[in-house]
Amino acid sequence: MRTITFNELRKIKDSLPEGSIHRIAESLQVSDETVRNYFGGANYKFGQTVGIHIEKGPDGGVVELDDTTILDMALSMLNEKS
């Protein structure tokens, strides 16, 4: 489990190179919408819930991530980009 602010999580998503959401989804065999939901999206018609818990507060609130696999993959992609 990991805790991060909502704004930090969104900044990571917004910094990802084009196509990263799809690459993560394909690698984990989930839909693109499921990955977007992990980063704060709410399209549960086409994506699944992903074990994030948001508590409202400063800096967008605090997000507890039950599983950091998607976050770890995103951070790895950002490191490759640098």
Rank of each mutant, 00 (worst) to 15 (best):
Y38V: 04
I24K: 02
Y38S: 05
G41I: 13
P17D: 02
G60H: 08
M1A: 10
E64L: 01
V62R: 06
H53L: 06
I52H: 00
E8T: 03
I12L: 05
G47C: 08
M1I: 06
E8V: 00
M73L: 15
G41Y: 12
N43C: 10
G40A: 08
G57Y: 05
E26F: 05
G47A: 09
Q48P: 03
N7S: 00
G41P: 13
I52N: 07
D66A: 14
M77I: 15
L28P: 05
M1K: 09
G40T: 09
G51E: 11
D67T: 04
T69E: 15
D72G: 10
I24W: 07
N43P: 11
M73Y: 12
G47L: 10
E33H: 07
E8P: 01
G61F: 07
Q48N: 15
K11M: 08
F46V: 05
R36Q: 13
V35H: 02
K13P: 00
E18M: 07
A42S: 15
K56G: 13
L75T: 14
E8S: 02
N79S: 12
T49L: 10
D72I: 03
F6N: 08
L78I: 00
L16D: 05
H22K: 14
R10V: 13
I21G: 09
L16V: 09
I12Y: 03
V35A: 06
R2Q: 13
D32H: 15
I4S: 00
A25E: 06
P17N: 06
T69S: 12
K45H: 10
K56M: 12
A42Y: 11
G60M: 03
G57C: 01
N37E: 09
G51K: 10
K45D: 14
L78K: 00
V35L: 01
F6P: 00
Y38M: 01
I70F: 10
D14Q: 07
V63F: 14
L28M: 13
T3M: 08
I12R: 03
T49N: 09
R10F: 00
L78S: 05
T3E: 15
S15T: 08
H22L: 09
G60L: 06
D59I: 07
D59P: 06
